[in-house]
Amino acid sequence: MRDITLSKAVNEAIAEEMRRDPTIFLIGEDVAEAGTPFKVLSGLVEEFGPERIIDTPIAEPGFMGIAVGAAMTGSRPIVDLMFGDFLFLVMDQLCNQAAKTHYMSGGKLNVPLVLRTNLGATRRSAAQHSQSLHALVAHIPGLKVAMPSSAYEAKGLMKTAIRDNNPVVIFEDKLMYNDKSPVPEGEYLIPFGQANIKREGTDITLIGTSSMVQVAERAAELLAAEGISAEVIDPRTIVPLDEETILRSVRKTSRAIVIDEGHQSYGITGEIASRIMEKAFYHLDGPVIRMGAMDVPVPFSPALEDVTVPTPEGVAENARRLMRGEMFHAA
C-alpha cells in the first residue's frame, strides 16, 4: 500500500467517481485553475473540463442553491465550500432545502449532494476561517456528516458520500491536507455509521473526531508509557453515529473522554457524552469528560490560538485524573 496525502486521497476519490458517473459535477470558488487554496482539486479541471469543474464568483448562497436544484433534477453535485466558516452563508439552501426536500416531497425527490468543506484551528487564520462548525449541521435531521481522520478515511468516506442519495456534509481538517497515510491502490468505500477502533485498550475510552483522533492516539501513547491502557475510537461519521461501538467500549473500560474540535458548549462532545451517560450509566466508574475547543472566537495570536484546542497532554492529564478517581468540577 502506498502512502498518500489526505489532499491527494480526496482528489482521487472525486476523480474516480467522476470517471464512473457523468452526472457528477463539482462547483465552488477557486476549484478549477486554482484547485482550491489547499490544492486539493489540482488537475481535475484538466481532466473533466470547466463544464464539470465549475468556478463560481464569490457567492456561496448562489452556487449552493444551484447545486441543490441540480441534485433534485438528476445531477450529483459536489459543492466545494472553501472554509467551513462559510456554512453560515448556505444555511437555508442546505438546512431548509437540501435536508428537507426528500421528506417534504413525500420521497419523490432526492438530493444526492455532497458539500465538502473543512474545519480546524491553529492555522493562524483568525476567527472567521478557523471554526469547526460540524455540530451546526449534525443538528439538522436529513443531513449526514462525515469527519475523516486520515487520508484513508477521506477517500473511502468521500466515495460513499458521492454515492449516497442524500445530502452529505464532509468536513476535512485543513491542517491535515499534507498528512500522509497508507491508502490502497484499489477501490474501496467506507460505509457510514461504522466507527473504527484505532487502538484497543482496557482502562479508558478516548473518542475523537477528525484530527482529534490523532490527538487521542498520541494521548494513548503517553498513557501507555504510564501503564494506562486507552482505547481510541474514531466514529468517522457523526451522523449516523455508531453508538454501539462506543457503548461496547465504554462498558468495557468504564471511563470515557470525548474529544472534538468544535466549541465545547452545545457540541458533538456533549452529544456523545450524553448518549454514553444515558445508555451505559451503570457501567461508568467516573464522569464522561468532554474536551472541545474553548468557547471563544478562535484567536489570531498563535500563542492564544494554540491553547484553545485539545492537546494530547491535556487529554492524558484528564485520563490520569479519571484513573485516580478524582472529582471533576466545572472551572
Binding site: 457501567h283 461508568l284 498563535p302 492537546t311 497532554e313 472551572a331
Partner: peptide, 29 residues
C-alpha cells in the same frame, strides 16, 4: 518556546462527604 500549556487548575477534592450523608460512589461501583 511556547510555554507548555498548564492544565487549568481543578479542585481535586480527595475526600468528599456529601452534606446530607449520602455516600458518593460511581454508578458502576
Amino acid at each position: 518556546p511556547v510555554a507548555p500549556t498548564a492544565p487549568a487548575p481543578h479542585r481535586a477534592l480527595e475526600a468528599v462527604v456529601a452534606p446530607d450523608g449520602r455516600i458518593l460512589a460511581s454508578p458502576k461501583a
